[in-house]
Amino acid sequence: MILGIETSCDETAAALVTLDGEIKANVVSSQADLHARYGGVVPEVASRRHLELVMPVLREALDEAGATLDEVERVAVTQGPGLVGALLVGLSTAKALAWARRLPLVPVDHLHGHVASLYLEPDPVEPPFICLLASGGHTLLLDVRAYGGFDVLGTTLDDAAGEAFDKGARLLGLGYPGGAAIDRLARGGDATAFSFPVARLDGLDFSFSGVKTSLLYAIRDLGDRLEACRSDLAASYQRAIVRALVQGALAAAEQAGRDTIAVVGGVAANSELRAALPGARFAPLALCTDNAAMIASAGRYSRPLPYPRYLDLDAYASRV
């Protein structure tokens, strides 16, 4: 089995996955409630919490799988991108665990992890495909040619799609994380009530900072009438973001000549996005937000570093 560990942002996660891609345990301890008080993730607060949670989460994963460390053949851990202080908690734990048991270790790129959430049983997606990765930290269009990697076709030039949902939710007086809150509020709203244009860019890049500003102005203009319009605002705002994502994914598939579109990351849980891309493959809901099963899954496709050749690994904040 592969032991996966993920601590790149505000979820502390451990998972056990077989070499065939079957999930034996997938434990995620979210810190969302903790960070809700601050309106977003505070790196030092997140890092402290990871250190408190990483052992209980590891033990729970072993319990859930009914396994012991004797059955672990390989350790896979997120090396980046993410909050370096948070990543170092998982990475240091993983290195120590692997070293003490003389196991190989696979450093996993978090983005590759999200893509690899599609490779798990019972319904794995096979490359090649276009992958839309949309989360609180990333918005990427990827050409996934093979299991081991991908080419980046487009990315956001400013806010990530999930970040746009979070900021919009904050403007609408909803809690953090904002994606699910907007999704719920939007269900009772008219998506055509307001026009929030998303900037059109050359190529396959995204920009979401303008749509957030449009929402801010709309809220200011409404004044006293805001309360009656909140669900319409949420629906229109969501429509604008989803439309940009869908147009990007379709254009990427056409440009790369791919028949399959797959969607991963926290925004893949959005109900309107799922409805707007009926032919696409979506990561299972439990694997959309950050988790360690996807990290263990990615660990199946990268070459493991043999004991003890991983002791000098460092975390990285962003891809160069």
């Binding site: 890092s47 250190l51 460390l69 170092l88 998982g90 120590a96 665990l97 070293w99 048991r101």
Partner: peptide, 19 residues
């Protein structure tokens, strides 16, 4: 250093669990 302290504790936790 907060990060340095956490690296030491995380490594100790990993070693303690493994051994």
């Amino acid at each position: 250093s907060f990060t340095g302290t956490r690296i030491g504790l995380a490594a100790a936790q990993g070693l303690a669990l493994a051994l």
